[in-house]
Amino acid sequence: MALLESRTDGPALVEDRFVRLADDAALPAEGAVLVSLVRFEKERAALLARKAPLGVWLASNQTPAAISNELDRLALVALDFPVFSDGRAFSSARLLRERYGYKGELRAIGDVLCEQLPFMLRSGFDTFEMKSPKALEEFRAVVGEVRVVYQPTGDGRATAIDRRLGRR
């Protein structure tokens, strides 16, 4: 599994500093951890008391409203794609960025299809858990493949309308 980060200067393979904790695994004394929403809600105080960065992952049927008041305490929110065709996380991502103002790392996990990367970027994701050993090449191949976008999203890209009106 490779973790890919989209940076302003292009994609990069990065090391995952978070350990994904199972709900019944012991909480380590140190180190960044990624926990489920259930565990976060149950052990909120203990998790926030730690000095290390904290991440929460949401299943595709869990709404980001559940963590909208905690976002400034989270270093990572991960959204799960149980299968690539389950597109709920696209909405969750946009809500986190555009409605709740989340600024931290937003990660796509699970069944991440390479062809979905442009949509994920537009929705606000900036890191991607990818199975393919050629993830970096694939990212470069698909992102930017279609030069025009029609929809305004939180990524701020100039839409066709913006360009037509000379707004940007």
């Binding site: 690539f84 065709s85 389950d86 597109g87 696209f90 909405s91 946009r94 979905q116 442009p118 949509f119 994920m120 537009r122 929705s123 279609v146 976008v149 029609y150 929809q151 999203t153 066709a160």
Partner: peptide, 13 residues
């Protein structure tokens, strides 16, 4: 048509 074409949020409904 334009708005719905390659909509990033609504391509996997």
């Amino acid at each position: 048509r334009q708005w719905s074409t390659l909509h990033p949020e609504f391509s996997f409904l």
